[in-house]
């Protein structure tokens, strides 16, 4: 049975699309047949992050309106096998999405895919509510900063009340927290909320902590999801998050400030002295 994952946040610019792309690639790398859908109708971005913008012919709205078949609209990813992208329409607006239309497309995808990743737009309007409506899992992307945390809290409220599972009184959506743009140095200085601070307010299981990294911007501009950059800290942190999602117990990395080499040298000397 296919699992539907929504990547959501409420706030814009926190890394939803980057996360959707990396989660989709990560799941496909581990052999799961995966499709990632861009729900941000009118502000299409996922195709750029996935590097397939030149191959978009039909889109999600075309499929909903039966102007194209699903197979015509699905784009095969160039990085990994087992991965497909369903791009958003750039010329329409979010009212083009309907519950019935989205439900029908997801039902069709469920037949052949293991994971369906829904990249939610920012806000709490139609696009965002429809992206989460059918979900089984929610990855709530949050920056360690008060306004992002409050927006995520609001999304968690909607996830527990305005989704199909909630309406049907079934088992609630599985919630995962993904903390992005985390900077241990600024946390140590008190400029940024710590993992503990965020957890105290949101109180849901932590899926991953992605460090602030130059690799993310580089990956976006080149159209290669950052999880493919195996050398980078952000890429490794996303890989860890995928393994945790699949049930493995992986220790958290990149959450402590790296001590300067001189400092480390001194602390070694101190230890010797004792």
């Amino acid at each position: 049975m296919a699992q539907i994952i929504v990547v959501t946040s409420g706030k814009g610019g926190v890394g939803k699309t980057t996360t959707s792309a990396s989660i989709a690639v990560g799941l496909a790398e581990r052999g799961f047949k995966t499709v990632v859908i861009d729900f941000d109708i009118g502000l299409r971005n996922l195709d750029l992050i996935m590097g397939c913008e030149r191959r978009v012919i039909y889109d999600f709205v075309n499929v909903i309106r039966a102007e194209a078949s699903l197979n015509q609209a699905l784009i095969r990813d160039k990085h990994v096998t087992n991965l497909y992208i369903l791009p958003a329409s750039q010329t329409r607006d979010k009212d083009a999405l309907t519950v019935e239309g989205v439900g029908a497309v997801l039902d069709e995808l469920r037949k052949t895919f293991d994971y369906i990743v829904c990249d939610s737009p920012a806000g709490i309007e139609r696009g965002a509510t429809l992206a989460m409506y059918f979900a089984d899992h929610a990855v709530v992307v949050t920056n360690p900063e008060v306004s992002s945390v409050r927006d995520s809290d609001r999304m968690l409220g909607l996830l527990s009340s305005k989704t199909k599972r909630a309406e049907e009184g079934r088992e609630p959506i599985t919630e995962h927290l993904l903390l992005t743009r985390y900077c241990p140095k600024r946390v140590a200085k008190g400029d940024m909320l710590s993992i503990g601070d965020v957890n105290e307010i949101l109180a849901i299981p932590l899926l991953g902590v992605i460090p602030e990294s130059t690799a993310v911007l580089r990956a976006s501009n080149s159209g290669d999801p950052v999880i493919l950059d195996k050398e980078s800290d952000a890429g490794q942190a996303y890989s860890d998050a995928i393994l945790r999602f699949l049930g493995q117990d992986i220790p958290f990395r990149f959450t402590e400030e790296k001590a300067h080499w001189l400092k480390r040298l001194f602390s070694m000397k101190e230890r010797e002295a004792v």
Binding site: R150, D153, R154, L156, G157, L158, S160, S161
Partner: peptide, 8 residues
């Protein structure tokens, strides 16, 4: 018995 989130 479940958390009451922002906006609820």
């Amino acid at each position: 018995t479940s958390p009451i989130r922002s906006g609820m």
